[in-house]
Design a protein around this nucleic acid. Structure first.
Lengths: 194, 194
DNA sequence: CACGTCGGCTAACGGGTATTAGCCGAACAT
DNA sequence: ATGTTCGGCTAATACCCGTTAGCCGACGTG
């Protein structure tokens, strides 16, 4: 799956720069300098700057979807399913904050047809969460005003994590994951009186 | 406060383009075309592209802070204060989604010293929410694992609204504001058993 | 009517950017 | 030893962009 070690270095450097400065503000010379070579030499390893972005974003989206499916498959209980899906969501956004950050912030810079592909994957991911909420409501375990609004709220929390989470911060990954799993259930109204 | 009608048109066009394409990807010619003139003619009305961005972002941040202070001043009850601050936050992000969107997404493109100024205002805004949470905890009205994490979560919800809210969508502004006010209290653990 | 200001225009400046072309040394295989 | 591939390099191509200079018609004012 992963190419030569040099290509991996380049992808990592591009990810870092795209995260900090943005795709448009990052030059091929910048990426080259980050791995110790000149801009044009990058073309011996990657097809184009746009290709670099597309690889990063689609890779991230596929990873996230795989983790989501795995998390949901571990139980049939509606409450636990939402908790574990949220935990997977938050853990990904904490552990791979750069990928998640670029995946949402630089989606604008992704050209067609890649952008439509990624948007379709995101729509599927979102509707997956909405289904989870709906299943809990139908089972009488959740109380929500709007499943759409509830799922947006939970997903947005994860996006936020990618922004402020720091590996060396005062709050560890496990603590954030646990707490946000709890928050998701509160948001969905689990355990509320009728 | 607001300049000539033409200057207002230009600011509105820039806001729209910065929102849709981003600051870096928007050219002065694009902004000019949106108001029916050529790129260089814009300089009869604005000092620079960077100045346009700075005006939009600092204006938005000041508006948001003013609304926050007004909302908090309406009551002394910790629970209601958090609810109203959240409602003001969410209402602003729904009603002025472009301003809010650009204010966070394009902050990277804002040069010094403006960026530091805005970051300081944002830090003050965030710590204001944290204080609100702490006040509720000390009054025995909230139950949270971490005030920082809780305030981040509530603020992130507002950011999310700026992304997905649509004036003509199926969920109206008042509905989102009300529901998110409730969510904030749930997130803060208001009304939870000891 | 003369004059100045306003707000548009085109042309030009100065710089930057992704990408391609073509060269070259090192490493490695035959 | 020879040839080929790999992965650097510099130079050049073909743009694009923010901004400034300088021109000019319309319009309000004395």
């Amino acid at each position: 799956m992963s190419g030569s070690p040099r290509s991996d270095d380049i992808r990592a450097a591009a990810l870092d720069l795209f995260t900090r400065r943005g795709y448009e503000a990052t030059t091929m010379a910048d990426i080259g300098a980050a791995v110790g070579i000149r801009g044009p030499s990058l073309y011996k390893h990657v097809a184009s700057k746009q290709d670099l972005l597309a690889g990063l974003i689609t890779g991230a989206m596929n990873d996230l979807l795989a983790l989501h499916r795995a998390a949901v498959a571990t139980t049939a209980d509606p409450v636990e399913r939402l908790r574990r899906a949220t935990e997977a969501h938050v853990r990904y956004h904490a552990r791979h904050r750069k990928e998640a950050f670029v995946g949402t912030r630089e989606l604008r810079s992704l050209q067609e047809p890649h952008r439509s592909d990624v948007l379709a994957l995101r729509a599927a991911y979102e509707s997956g969460f909405r289904e989870l909420v709906n299943a809990g409501v139908e089972a009488g375990r959740f109380r929500v005003a709007s499943a759409r609004l509830t799922s947006y709220a939970i997903l947005d929390l994860g996006m936020g994590v990618a922004v402020w989470f720091r590996e060396d911060g005062e709050i560890g990954e496990d603590a954030v994951v646990w707490e946000y799993g709890e928050l998701a259930l509160r948001i969905a109204g689990a355990g509320l009186p009728d």
